[in-house]
């Protein structure tokens, strides 16, 4: 259930393009034709699905405060989180290069359709943004991180597909000359983003429940603590 919820949340509510404006540059530059937009969108899903879980592992076992515990207790208080930007971007750049080589070797047809977009993706904010949001939202498990990567990739794909289709049609409309091209694309994207905001109501019930559970957990923990204190006091008195 948790997985399905995160999946739909990352596609619609936290849509990369409409809610957080990530990957806008390539979204605007490559959305003139539907066919190229599909190619880039597929490449983004692919790379996000690989890099987000990979960076989750890095974050969990290398970067977080205390993450180096598996090396031995003397490493437990190291905090390497300031290195996360450089680690994430290096992972992304090398993964993109690796994926490019592998795809070229094993599936030339896929390479021909994705090929030219793969290098572009290393500098797509949506990819790094996916990893950074994964880190800042503290996604708990590897499975959820993978789902988050795939979901946000699909969200980005839907967004670029929609705008490319609209831009193909708008060519035949009478747009004011100064707004043609970039200007009208911005305004359409704004209107689409307003539309996507309506998805925000979809899962709010779940969001409201979550903090309550935390609260009750805290209260229980507090009770336990106070019980312990009482017991400790009693034992002291007894002594």
């Amino acid at each position: 259930m948790e997985h399905i919820e995160l999946f739909f949340k990352s596609i619609f509510i936290d849509n990369m393009v409409f809610a957080t404006f990530l990957g806008m540059c390539s979204y605007l530059a490559v959305s003139k034709k539907v066919s190229t937009a599909v190619g880039l969108g597929a490449a983004v899903i692919f790379v996000l699905a690989i890099t987000v879980p990979l960076n989750w592992l890095l974050d969990q076992y290398l970067l977080q405060p205390g993450a180096l515990k598996w090396l031995g207790t003397e490493y437990a208080d190291y905090d390497l989180s300031f290195l996360s930007f450089i680690m994430f971007i290096a992972t992304i750049a090398t993964m993109v290069q690796l994926v490019e080589i592998v795809v070229e070797k094993f599936s030339p047809s896929l390479y021909n359709s994705l090929g030219i977009f793969l290098p572009l993706i290393a500098v797509n904010c949506a990819i790094l943004g996916g990893s950074l949001f994964m880190q800042s939202r503290e996604i708990p498990t590897l499975g959820l991180a993978t789902i988050y990567g795939i979901g946000s990739g699909i969200g980005w794909f839907l967004a670029i597909l929609a705008i490319a289709a609209i831009r193909e049609k708008i060519r035949y409309s009478n747009v004011p000359p100064a707004l043609r091209g970039l200007g009208i694309t911005f305004i359409i994207t704004g209107l689409m983003a307003i539309g996507f905001m309506s998805f925000g109501g979809m899962l709010t019930g779940g969001d409201e429940e979550a903090p309550k559970e935390e609260k009750t957990a805290k209260v229980e923990a507090y009770k336990e603590d106070s019980n312990k204190k009482v017991i400790a006091n009693n034992t002291k008195v007894n002594e």
Partner: peptide
């Protein structure tokens, strides 16, 4: 809200 940023830039 975020969509207005797009419209302002437009």
């Amino acid at each position: 809200l975020s969509p207005m940023a797009l419209i302002v830039v437009g």
